[in-house]
């Protein structure tokens, strides 16, 4: 029955121009609705981004009316909650960089090595075991990492370095490193896998060993992807909040000693947000100034990463 109807319909398309046109219009109307809906969803993220930038700017600008911009970005003393007040953000930047450097030291070599092992050396079976474990690592809530740092990593560090403080940068940066490691491994894995097999074959046919093929053809060919993964990992480490709030301390300080307590930009924002700084006061506005700086840094790093990645995609086109 239904089939017959369809056949009939198909056989009489010229029956009525008007109906055909109507059907066409209806079709377009539906298509348009779907397109509009999809556009709205995509647009939502743009709107959100713009909204965040607007809020940050609106709250941060009044701050810079009270505190000169140069004092903020070049000052080395950060005591916005204590008298005499000082708004030099560099101690927070320094603390953040200390965390990022430590995390990079953990995540980059191990992440890259894992990717190389998984992609170039591991058997299918080993790969099928390690990959899910890495994904589990990526799924652990960051607060758990924070307590892991406090209750396991810090005591461990203290047995080797007695000068280790209860809250310290090293412990936090190690767990932040473990946290971003799956991301590095996964992005590096993608980069290595994008290298066509024909290049490996070509290198093997020249009498190269697996190590030579990996280090002298595959890795150089995927270098931009690897670098992009490093930049993205660093930008995630900069934004990481929970573990550093719990484990790194709340002592804004210009130091390069990882065993001391420090404070990162994110941890400062948490501290003030949880405190009772009244809206409109200058200490309240500091969170937006710090957040704006944080946003600018991570945005810059993401742009760099995408630039590098684009270059990398062009190689095989």
């Amino acid at each position: 029955m239904l089939k017959n109807k369809l056949v009939q319909k198909r056989r009489q398309p010229e029956k009525s121009e008007a109906i055909a046109l109507g059907a066409k219009l209806k079709y377009h109307w539906k298509e348009g609705l779907i397109k509009a809906g999809l556009f709205l969803c995509a647009f939502l993220s743009v709107v959100t981004t713009i909204a965040i930038i607007t809020v940050l700017a609106r709250e941060a600008f009044p701050f810079f009316r009270e505190v000169p911009f140069l004092d903020f970005v070049a000052g080395t003393k950060w005591t916005p909650l204590l008298q005499p007040r000082s708004f030099g953000v560099l101690p927070l930047v320094c603390g953040t960089l200390l965390i990022v450097a430590g995390a990079a030291l953990v995540a980059l070599p191990i992440g890259l090595a894992s990717a190389i092992y998984l992609g170039e050396y591991a058997s299918r079976r080993v790969r099928s075991i390690i990959k899910p474990v890495l994904e589990i690592l990526a799924g652990i809530p960051t607060v758990v990492y924070g307590y892991f740092a406090l209750t396991f990593v810090t005591p461990l560090l203290a047995t080797f370095f007695p000068s280790t403080q209860v809250f310290n940068a090293a412990s936090a940066s190690i767990v932040v490193g473990i946290m971003v490691l799956p991301m590095v491994a996964s992005l590096c894995d993608d980069a290595l896998r994008a290298v066509p097999d024909s290049l490996r074959q070509g290198a093997y046919a020249l009498g190269a060993t697996q190590f030579e093929v990996t280090t002298r053809v595959v890795l150089p060919a995927s270098l931009s992807g690897v670098v992009a993964s490093f930049v993205l990992a660093a930008s995630r480490a900069i934004g990481e909040t929970m573990a550093v709030t719990l484990a790194a301390g709340a002592t804004p300080k210009m130091t390069l000693n990882p065993l001391e307590s420090i404070q990162t930009m994110t941890a400062y924002i948490v501290q003030v947000s949880l405190g009772d700084a009244p809206a409109g006061t200058v200490e309240y506005k500091t969170i937006f100034a710090v957040a704006a700086l944080l946003f600018a840094i991570t945005l810059g790093m993401n742009i760099v990463a995408h630039k590098v990645l684009r270059q990398f995609q062009e190689v095989y086109e």
């Binding site: 070509g202 020249l206 009498g207």
Partner: peptide, 20 residues
């Protein structure tokens, strides 16, 4: 096999120069 491949070279169906 590494020595074998040094003495017996190979050219493939699709040109596969390294991106260097």
């Amino acid at each position: 096999p590494v020595d074998v491949r040094r003495r017996i070279g190979m050219v493939f169906q699709k040109p596969n120069p390294f991106p260097k």
